[in-house]
Write a protein that binds this DNA or RNA. Structure first.
Lengths: 137, 137
DNA sequence: ATGGGTGCAAAGTGTTTGCAACCGT
DNA sequence: ACGGTTGCAAACACTTTGCACCCAT
C-alpha cells in the first residue's frame, strides 16, 4: 500500500502525495517532468496545483523516493527510485530515455575520484544519442 | 591574434566579442558563468550588457570556440574549447571544477551506445565529489 | 485542535528576445 | 551604406515562495 511508503519516510499521507506517488509508479515512460504529472492529474480531474507537484517531488527526492535528473532542455525529469542505480541515454530525435548500467564505468569513476583524493557523492552520466543508420528499432 | 580566431569562424570582429574571448582565454578557473564574465567586464569598465554576453557565448558555442556545461546549480558554465576532450569532477564544497579524461570510459560508452543501436552525439559525465577525509590538498 | 499541507498568485532565477541605435566592413 | 551587432528593458520558461485556508492526525 502506498500510504505505507509515505509514512515510512515520515510524510503525512495526503491526497496529493498519494496521487502523485501513484502516477510515478504507473508512469511509462518512467521519466516524467513535473508538468507531465500535473497534466495527468488534470486529466483525472484532480484539483492539485503545479506548485504542489513541485513541492511534493522535492520532498520525495529528499526522502529518497524519487531521483531527479537535469538532462538538456531545461525541464527536470523525475523517476521513482527503484533501487537499481543506472545511467541514461537520451535519444535526441525521439526524446526517449534509455537506462543502462556499467559496473565497469562505475568502477573507473571511483578509481578516478580516488586518484584525485575525492569520494563521489553523486554522479551524472548521460549519453545523447541518435539511432545508427540502418539500426533496427 | 584573437581577431583572427573570430574571423576564422565567420564572426565579425567586434569589441564585445574580443573582450569576451580575451576573458575566456585568461580565465582561471577556466570554467566561468555568463555572470562571471559580465562581472569582469564591469570591473574593467566595459559597457557590455549581460544579454550580449549570453548572445556572444551562444555564438561562440555554435562556432565551436567554447563548450557549455550544465552542472547542478542552475547556472551554465562555459570554457574555451582547447580541443582536448575531458570530463568533469565538481567539488561540492568548494565548487572547484577538476578535469579528467578516461579513454577507457569513453570506449565503454561507445560500446554501450553501439550495443543499443545508437551513435553518441555528445555526452556528459560529471562526478560530484567531496575531499576524502585526510586527503592532502 | 493544531501544525503541517495546499491552491493560488506573485516572486525568483537564469536566459532569451524585440527594437532602435550603432558599428564593422 | 548595409546588415549584422549591441544595450536596454521586457519577455520567457521553469521553479519557488508567501499567505490564508484546509485537512490528516
Amino acid at each position: 500500500m502506498e500510504s505505507q511508503e509515505l509514512r515510512k519516510v515520515g510524510l503525512k499521507v495526503t491526497h496529493p502525495r498519494m496521487r502523485i506517488l501513484d502516477i510515478l509508479e504507473r508512469a511509462s515512460p518512467r521519466h516524467v517532468t513535473a508538468e507531465d504529472i500535473y497534466r495527468q492529474l488534470i486529466e483525472h480531474d484532480e484539483d492539485i496545483g503545479l506548485a504542489t507537484v513541485y513541492r511534493v517531488l522535492t520532498q520525495f527526492e529528499a526522502a529518497g523516493l524519487v531521483l531527479k535528473h537535469n538532462f538538456e532542455g531545461g525541464q527536470a525529469v523525475f523517476e521513482l527510485d527503484r533501487g537499481h542505480h543506472h545511467d541514461h541515454m537520451v535519444d535526441l530525435d525521439s526524446g526517449k530515455v534509455i537506462e543502462f548500467t556499467s559496473e565497469e564505468i562505475e568502477r573507473l569513476q571511483h578509481e578516478i575520484a580516488e586518484r584525485h583524493g575525492y569520494v563521489i557523492e553523486e554522479h551524472s552520466l548521460v549519453l545523447y544519442v541518435r539511432r545508427k543508420r540502418g539500426a533496427a528499432s
